[in-house]
Design a binder for these strands. Structure first.
Lengths: 203, 203
DNA sequence: TTTTGGTTTAACCAATTGATTTAACTAATA
DNA sequence: TATTAGTTAAATCAATTGGTTAAACCAAAA
């Protein structure tokens, strides 16, 4: 029954997502995934053949989910400053809902970089620069943005957004001693990071 | 012979450092460590009893090495701006020499947060704030720094410095398409990040 | 009702892996 | 030289783990 199959496959996929996100590729156990899915371990291999196949499926889905969130900013008709505010608001909100995702993706790519070569073909600084010029030619004189500094600026923006979640384990412990709530911190960070960047790039 | 013992133990420790940094706790193999150390696998257990003991020793050493780098900034007699410049210069230089360290530490802590509870007892925002007031009371009026925003500012500074190395795998691949050299990028980042932060916090 | 195709499970397998055991080795000491 | 205490390695173990097999199950079709 294809209805049922879709269901079982999804159940496995979701269980695998949780386990892989939690333990990583090398730390995850097929039995653990089977238990969480409430099925026999052999079914995992019936639907996904091997652990690597299953991981590949989960990783690709999650990596897409992650990197998709970077693109739609330039589809909006907003001022440059509002685009920055929009990005931090949306992106941090997304990570609040998927707090383990950044650390998982970063770690797995560090262990196997070619895993995302295909996905990152979209990252195009030249195209990004022309897009910025097209959309913000009139207001660009107000900011310290050049094609040369674009990689620095872009990685800076991503750093401010992603790092707190990628290093959640450390930050939570560090905050714990002072009663700083991580969720409150990330909520405030949406505006703090945006205004911080705007202030920094304004001439 | 205690001389020889110290040597063997160090050889094991260094081999374990390389392997754990590369593969993580769950991905590392005792046989791999033994091979790299050029000794029999049983010797690992003779000197460190278990894999967890060995990992604990390596991790503690590396974590200290990492977090030590945050403290000595306030021992220098510098202006606030020069302290920021000093931090990024020193810290990024350190990570250029240990590029895998940030990703390793972050990942292992995410998998087991209580592992650094002891080490992070030093992190004290209240004390940091009083130190800043003590050392920079006259020039503080020039900057947008308050006790409330200190956690945001500190995590921002750390983000800008650490993230490029923690996410080295992603960034290298993303840069690869445009002939941007990662080492050149990190070298430029020492000054870019410093001036970025100074600009952002200046009233 | 029987057949048939896909689905699920229990049992099992082979390889890996952390760990132990036992014996060989080595150098200082008596 | 014989002894002894510590060091190293070969062989082995027991548990884990990814993967396979064969049979049971189940619903739709004939």
């Amino acid at each position: 029954m294809s209805e049922n199959e879709k269901l079982t496959e999804e159940i496995i996929f979701e269980a695998a997502t949780v386990v892989f996100e939690e333990d990583g590729l090398s730390g995850a156990r097929m039995q653990n995934i089977a238990d969480r899915a409430g099925i026999n371990k052999a079914l995992l291999h019936y639907y996904f053949r091997t652990k690597d196949h299953l991981f590949e499926a989960v990783f690709t889905k999650l990596a897409q989910k992650m990197f998709m969130k970077f693109t739609p900013i330039f589809e909006k008709n907003l001022s440059l400053e509002d685009k920055i505010r929009f990005f931090f608001r949306e992106h941090i909100t997304f990570m609040q809902q998927n707090p383990k995702l950044p650390g998982f993706i970063i770690n797995e790519i560090n262990h196997n970089p070619q895993r995302i070569k295909k996905l990152l073909r979209n990252v195009d600084f030249r195209k990004l620069w022309t897009t910025i010029i097209e959309q913000h030619s009139e207001e660009l004189y107000k900011y310290n943005i050049t094609e040369e500094t674009l990689p620095q600026i872009m990685t800076t923006i991503v750093s401010l957004s992603v790092f707190p979640f990628a290093a959640k384990g450390i930050i939570e412990v560090a905050f714990d001693n002072f009663g700083i709530d991580f969720d409150k911190y990330t909520e405030e960070r949406k505006t703090f990071a945006a205004e911080f960047v705007i202030k920094a790039i304004t001439k």
